[in-house]
Design a protein around this nucleic acid. Structure first.
Length: 698
DNA sequence: GAGCACTGC
């Protein structure tokens, strides 16, 4: 056991040649372990950040290149400093604005607050931010604006050339979210019309080359532009080192059979043999995490000396807020904290004090099959980029150790360098409608950083056509198409809202739309399934989950939005507050679109019709003679089941539509409502035209 | 009979 590990090293930093006119600054390899001193002035602190050494170089490159790619490791200070350098160099003069996008709302808020503090200004004035539902900027005074990439996309609908921005910095571009990829594609287009616009793409090492290739304009274009004044069109690449400490990498010598068991053994091994310091374990989901904690607890009972002093903390998004926050509490003296986490700890939140890292090499990832139109969540191997990111989590406070539960040979020979961009793993309905709203007609010919499959594109176009959002020429219909594009929700939900106007149930449908937009309004946790089921029964509606949501919402309002009421009923208080907030936003949007907000009172049939009008593509029929509750999708005859969390579980109405599928050993429909099949033909004659009368018989 | 993570006027 003691010789389980074979030390290895991380792949060295990519230091590349200068082919194709790409300028490359290599960072010095110094292990920057300079410590921060307590009372240094903000200015001194800023100068100590690794990125400070590159201030002049960055400003030079931005001045002279249309696109600059910054390869920066965590802790380099690039996100907070570069926008300030740009402002100091005059890029915000004359009413122009410097934009910096982030993939996450929380990051936008945190970073903008930090920058405002460093500049000694009030947040919302010179430095501001915009996220969905929150605009803390002041047009006229805001010079540096942080925003989510999705918000910047929305801004393009009003101002396609982003004329008020002088520089757009796309941060964390290596995460390759759908909105980042759309944004990169559009920014490249804008550059041709606006030579004055500068782009900064911040990316992890491993992605820098493909980013550079993407922004490289063709030789012919460059020859044409060569004579003109203006920035060079070829991208520059600059590498900035981070502030992380060295992390020693260990691989297993033989492949492991069971990564949960291996993770547990490794935690015990570290606890046995290594000095104090907290451990972070990456597993794939709640199941794995609960199993690992169970095994470690068992160990604690049978072999006390092995595991005494371990504090076991699960971490995943579905965990109630209070339990999530335990991972941030300081470790008591003489104890060792073991955080067992999903990918949430890889990007979304940062744990301080982690010294040991156990990497299973797997995560749950979404995949999309355009033929069946089904998105699956499956356990899949992570990429080298992810492995590297995970390892880095162990070196934030002092040198750390990373234990990888896969072999070095597997890492170097089989693990893919980078993950598959989300664009190539998703249903593209939302993406297509956004591009259409931005006036991009030739979607199949769009210049993407990573092209989605034509099948997925065609499937999205087909569904949008059936929803009446696109016409025969694949243009947005008026008014429905333009209205759906305005609503910041999944197009199927937006369509449901539009239909509710005609059906006279918009009050109810707005509530349902808001509930479907939050993760879950229920509190679920280990060992409380039965209590949750009982609580649900108090609200359960025979029609299905959507109508059940209406009952919960009504109860919540009647309780005076009480957190105690939520606790008593296993309802997630934070989720319900968000529902109220989103619903209010949707109500305003609906009114702006001319929707009359009206209640259908007790008539749930119209509510079900409105849901069907949006979700007809997800219609399923119970298999006759099936006692196992097996359904088949009307479109593709795929085998699906009602999720056990649904109020219709075991009720099994003959016809249902679902909101989403989750797949484990089976495909489970989540959020299900019973319908009458005749509504399907009413809602989408084209979609179901090839089905004869018989297939809809009762 | 049971849920990776984000996000949008």
């Amino acid at each position: 056991m003691a010789q389980f590990w074979k030390p290895g090293t991380e792949k060295p930093r990519l230091v590349d040649d200068e082919e194709g006119g790409v300028l490359f600054f290599s960072a010095s390899a110094s292990s920057s372990s300079s410590s921060r001193f307590g009372y240094a002035s903000i200015e001194k602190q800023r100068q100590r950040l690794p990125v400070y050494k590159y201030r002049t170089a960055i400003l030079y490159l931005v001045e002279n290149h249309a696109t600059t790619i910054i390869v920066g490791e965590t802790g380099s200070g690039k996100t907070t400093q570069i926008p300030q350098y740009l402002k100091e160099a005059g890029w915000a003069e004359g009413g122009r604005v410097i934009a910096c996008t982030q993939p996450r709302r929380l990051a936008v808020q945190a970073v903008s607050a930090r920058v405002a503090e460093e500049m000694g200004v009030t947040l919302g004035e010179e430095v501001g931010y915009t996220i969905r539902f929150e605009d803390l900027t002041n047009s006229g005074t805001t010079m540096i604006k942080f925003l989510t990439d999705g918000v910047l996309l929305r801004e393009m609908m009003d101002d396609p050339l982003l004329t008020k921005y002088s520089v757009v910095m796309v941060d964390e571009a290596h995460e390759r979210s759908i909105s980042t990829d759309i944004l990169l594609g559009l920014l490249k287009k804008i550059q041709r019309r606006r030579p004055d616009l500068r782009l900064i793409i911040s990316s992890a090492t491993i992605e820098a080359k493909s980013m550079s290739a993407f922004f490289q304009t063709s030789k012919r274009r460059r020859a044409l532009e060569g004579e003109e004044l203006g920035p060079r069109m070829d991208p520059a690449i600059l590498s900035v080192e981070g502030r992380g400490f060295h992390v020693q990498i260990h691989f297993v010598e033989e492949p492991v059979q069971d990564y949960v068991q291996a993770a547990v053994s490794t935690v015990l091994l570290i606890h046995d043999q290594e000095p104090m310091g907290d451990i972070l374990v990456f597993l794939t989901g709640q199941d794995d995490i609960d199993a690992a904690i169970h095994l470690l607890n068992e160990e604690a009972q049978t072999n006390r000396k092995h595991s005494s002093g371990l504090i076991l903390l699960p971490l995943y998004s579905g965990l109630p807020r209070a339990e999530q926050e335990l991972v941030f509490s300081p470790t008591p003296r003489g104890k060792r904290k073991v955080v067992i986490s999903t990918n949430i700890a890889e990007t979304s939140l940062t744990l301080e004090g982690i010294v040991y890292l156990v990497d299973s090499g797997f995560s749950k990832q979404k995949f999309y099959n355009p033929i069946s139109d089904i998105e699956n969540l499956v356990v899949a191997p992570i990429s080298k980029a992810s492995a590297r990111q995970r390892a880095g989590r162990a070196g934030r406070v002092r040198p750390g150790k990373c234990y990888r539960l896969y072999t070095e040979e597997y890492f170097s020979k089989e693990m893919s360098a980078e993950g598959i961009p989300e664009m190539q793993r998703s249903n593209l309905v939302s993406c297509v409608i956004q591009l259409k709203a931005l006036g991009i007609d030739n979607i199949l010919g769009f210049d993407w950083p990573a092209s989605p499959s034509p099948e997925a594109m065609i499937r999205a176009l087909e569904i949008l056509y059936s929803l009446g959002i696109l016409d025969d020429d694949a243009k947005l219909t008026s008014p429905a198409g333009f209205q759906v594009a305005e609503i910041p929700l999944e197009p199927m939900i937006s369509k449901m809202i539009l239909s509710s106007n005609e059906l006279g149930c918009s009050e109810e449908i707005l509530t349902i739309a808001a509930v479907l937009s939050v993760q879950s309004i229920w509190v679920y946790g280990r060992g409380v399934h039965r209590e949750l089921d009982e609580a649900k029964l108090r609200f359960a509606a025979a029609e299905g989950d959507h109508v059940t949501f209406l009952n919960v919402y009504k109860g919540f309002l009647q309780s005076g939005k009480s957190s105690q009421w939520c606790h008593k009923n296993h309802v997630n208080y934070h989720a319900m507050k968000k529902v109220v907030e989103i619903r209010e936003q949707l109500r305003r949007i609906a009114q702006r679109l001319g929707i009359v907000v009206k209640s259908c009172e007790r008539d749930m049939q119209v509510v079900r019709k409105a849901v069907t009008a949006g979700f007809f593509a997800n219609a399923c029929r119970l298999e006759a003679f099936s006692h196992s509750g097996m359904y088949k999708t009307v479109r593709g005859s795929h085998e699906v089941y009602i999720h056990p969390s649904s109020v219709l579980f075991r009720v099994n109405p003959k016809w249902v539509v679902y909101h989403s599928l989750v797949s484990t050993d089976r495909q489970y429909m989540r959020n299900v409502i019973s319908i009458d099949p005749s509504w399907l033909i009413e809602a989408a004659p084209h979609f179901y035209q090839h089905h004869g009368q018989n297939s809809f018989g009762k």
